[in-house]
Simulated scan of single mutants.
Amino acid sequence: MNNNYSPDQDPIKLFTLAEDHPCSYLNDRNANSAFVDPSQPPTWEQYSALSRLGFRRSGNHFYRPHCRQCSECKSSRIRAFEIDLSRKRFKRILNKSKHLTLSLEPATFSEEHYDIYERYITQRHHDGDMYPPSIEQYKGFLTSEFPFSQLMSMRDDEGQLILATCIDILDDGISAIYTYFDPDYSDLSPGTLAILKMCELAIEQGHPYVYLGYWVKDSPKMAYKRQFTPLDIFDGQNWLGFNPES
């Protein structure tokens, strides 16, 4: 992949939704998004640059929050080379998973991955907007023909899939799209484990950042991100060191 821009790249066209919709993070708010023209997806170089401006990917959609009366959703990223993976809790989680093997696979559909996803959504998020799960939903959300998109899978000694994270490899880091896991292995702290493994992978590949999605100060769903310091937060113009009070 070439990190340099080409003058032949088409300009990015952005749109917003015609109507607001209920916010997924704050119950008393409505939300909207700015998104890239889906008929003209960005190049890898453009996508990497968009990520530094707070954009994310979901399926074939590249977007960032564009709410009329709220700016609480702020992009977050871990400084991979600075996170202390030897912290007591992190070390314990990594040690418990030593019997698992990690592999990177194409982000294509498989019954094996969908079965885990279906169980995860049904058992862990049956009260969320992704329930009930379906093959069509899974394909539209997590499968991709983009060459930068992969599934980071972890399996046990018998080759059984335990957890998977859809990731995008950017020019300066790894973007975490979504993690799902076998609920029977919750004692491995698989959500935290996936993030730690992304940090290890970023370090191995020489990338300084793991893009972790949005930080919303008053959303309980986001509280887990506090532990992955040093964390940077994008305020709409600059990436700033994480301040839990701001």
Rank of each mutant, 00 (worst) to 15 (best):
D115V: 11
F234P: 14
G59Q: 03
S186M: 12
S58C: 09
R68V: 10
M222H: 04
Y224N: 04
A107S: 09
L142V: 10
A80M: 00
R77S: 10
L163F: 05
E45N: 08
A194H: 02
L231S: 06
A223F: 00
L53R: 11
K91F: 04
S153F: 03
M1N: 15
S110N: 03
W239T: 13
I135L: 12
A194T: 12
D182T: 12
I135F: 08
S75Q: 10
P41L: 01
K91P: 15
Y120V: 02
E19T: 14
S86N: 15
C166R: 10
S246P: 06
L163G: 13
D218H: 14
Y120M: 09
L85V: 02
Q137N: 12
R87M: 10
E45D: 14
F234W: 04
S76P: 08
L201K: 14
W215A: 02
Y211D: 00
T229C: 10
R89W: 06
L53S: 06
T108F: 09
V210Q: 05
R57G: 10
D182M: 09
E111H: 12
I121W: 00
I195A: 07
P208M: 05
S75L: 11
F81E: 11
H207V: 07
Y5A: 13
S48P: 02
F55I: 08
E19C: 14
L196P: 14
R79N: 14
R56Y: 08
P106A: 12
M152H: 07
F242Q: 04
Y120I: 07
S144F: 07
D10F: 13
G241S: 14
F55S: 08
R29K: 14
C166F: 09
D37F: 02
S24V: 04
M1R: 15
R155L: 04
T16N: 13
Y185Q: 09
L94R: 05
Q227Y: 01
P190F: 07
L240T: 11
E145F: 07
K225I: 00
N238F: 07
D171S: 13
Y209P: 11
F148D: 15
P22Q: 04
G140M: 06
I233Q: 08
R64I: 02
D168M: 03
E82P: 12
D168V: 03
G173V: 05
P190L: 00
P38V: 01
I93T: 06
P106L: 01
H21P: 02
F109C: 09
F146R: 14
I135T: 04
E136V: 15
D8M: 13
Q160R: 15
K225Y: 05
A49T: 11
